[in-house]
């Protein structure tokens, strides 16, 4: 639902990162890292990105999304494991104090520019 805002930020950061001395830059791919628990719906982000990137060097770019597993750590018994469902209880101790290590990322990693003709 807030994918439009995310797409806006994404396009802004990407445009700022393109060196000014490149003539008619065209971005082929935008590499992203998105945590499995981040509230981002991929097709909705792609859709918003297409709208926002229109008439910019990103217009033809493809979003390549690397999805990051949800990893947690129990502060009570020091175990770490990957969570695949919505359950964060520690399987090793009774009532552990569980913190997230990864899975909430929404990051832009890199751009691939088309080579100049």
């Amino acid at each position: 639902m807030h994918e439009m805002g995310i797409a806006e930020q994404l396009v802004k950061i990407a445009l700022d990162a393109i060196p000014k001395d490149i003539k008619n830059p065209r971005v082929e791919t935008v590499h992203l890292k998105i945590g499995k628990l981040a509230s981002v719906v991929e097709h909705s982000l792609t859709f918003c990105f297409e709208i926002i990137s229109k008439d910019t060097p990103l217009e033809k770019a493809r979003l390549e999304i690397d999805s990051v597993p949800v990893k947690v750590h129990c502060k009570s018994c020091d175990h770490s494991w990957e969570v695949t469902g919505p359950v964060f209880q520690c399987p090793f101790c009774e009532d552990g104090d569980v913190e997230m290590i990864s899975g909430r990322e929404i990051e832009i990693i890199s751009l691939e520019l088309e080579d100049a003709p």
């Binding site: 950061i13 393109i18 691939e112 520019l113």
Partner: peptide
């Protein structure tokens, strides 16, 4: 050509 960025998209917020 690859341009490295490595930034949080919601950094502004």
């Amino acid at each position: 050509m690859e341009i490295k960025i490595q930034k949080k998209v919601l950094q502004v917020n």
